[in-house]
Amino acid sequence: MATLLAIVLYVSICFSIMQNWLLFASLCILMFSVRYGAIMLIPLAIVLDGYYGNYHTIPYLSFITVWWYVVVEYMRPKILGPDMIKV
């Protein structure tokens, strides 16, 4: 069930960014990050930057996601507690 939810959230993040539903995307990202960490968002951001051709200028989505990963990794233990996190 957790895996299915993760897949649904992941796909929702991808399509909501592509459809420019930024509020919904932010909500999904927050839920995904809290439950499963943000490491899986980095490849998604890299792929989306490539899809939109941002590597010809600045891949801002990838940089923001890396920053978000660091923030989440430091914040998650404080929100959920160290025992709740599966590495």
Binding site: I46, Y55, P59
Partner: peptide, 10 residues
Amino acid sequence: ISIAVILFGM
């Protein structure tokens, strides 16, 4: 690794 991939992409 992420920064390396991004820089490679750039």
